Amino acid sequence: MEHLLETASTSSTAEAVKNRMLQHDAFSKLLGLEVQEVGAGYCRLRFTVRPDMLNGFAALHGGVTFAAADSAFAFACNSHGRQSVGLTVTIDYLEAGKLGDVITVEAREESLKHKVGVYQVRATNQHGVVLALFKGTAYRTSNEIL
């Protein structure tokens, strides 16, 4: 029972942090990111590829994919209630998104220490094809978010 209460508490913290972050996150709103689920060290969001997100070859611009992955990373690493900032990130682009694709971006915590967290982020289309793999390392400040 104690574990169940702890999980509910961490989920409510993650939800409150997400709401606070979204109040001031104009860029995620510009991209049309819909945060579907957050939890301790976790975020799943999605967006639909619009014409203004395409590059000169009619493929999803890598910067959009990167930005969506970075947003999922931010929600996941801040979900514990301590302000976190990205230290390093890398991304591997595996496939190109196309106009009208519904992209799901899922961030998962791989390691959490006192000062550093490591996260893996996957971007997939509506057919389950992996478009990109993103890895982020976050520095956890001592600043409480809530």
Rank of each mutant, 00 (worst) to 15 (best):
A59K: 15
T137S: 13
Y139H: 06
K18L: 07
N125P: 04
K18T: 05
K29R: 09
F57Y: 12
A67R: 06
A67N: 10
R140S: 04
E15N: 12
T65Y: 03
Q126E: 10
V38C: 01
Q120L: 15
G136S: 06
T104V: 08
L31D: 05
R46W: 09
K135I: 09
I145V: 08
V121T: 14
T88C: 13
V49L: 12
A132S: 07
R82G: 08
R46A: 05
D70V: 05
T48K: 15
F47D: 10
V121W: 05
Y119E: 07
N143T: 15
L31F: 03
E106K: 06
K135P: 04
F75V: 00
R50H: 05
N55Q: 04
T13H: 00
G32H: 02
K18W: 09
A8S: 08
K18I: 02
D92V: 00
K18P: 10
G97F: 00
F75L: 06
A14W: 02
L54N: 05
G56S: 12
V130T: 12
E109R: 06
V129G: 04
A58G: 12
D101R: 10
T88L: 14
F27D: 02
G56K: 10
S71A: 12
L31R: 03
T124M: 04
L60T: 02
T7D: 13
A107L: 05
N143P: 10
D25V: 03
C43R: 04
D101I: 04
V85A: 08
T65G: 07
V116Y: 09
Y93K: 04
F73D: 06
E106P: 08
M21E: 09
S84I: 01
E106R: 12
L146D: 07
R122L: 14
H114N: 13
L94N: 00
D92N: 05
Y119M: 11
E109Q: 11
A107H: 03
H114V: 13
A72E: 06
D101Y: 03
Y93V: 00
E144M: 13
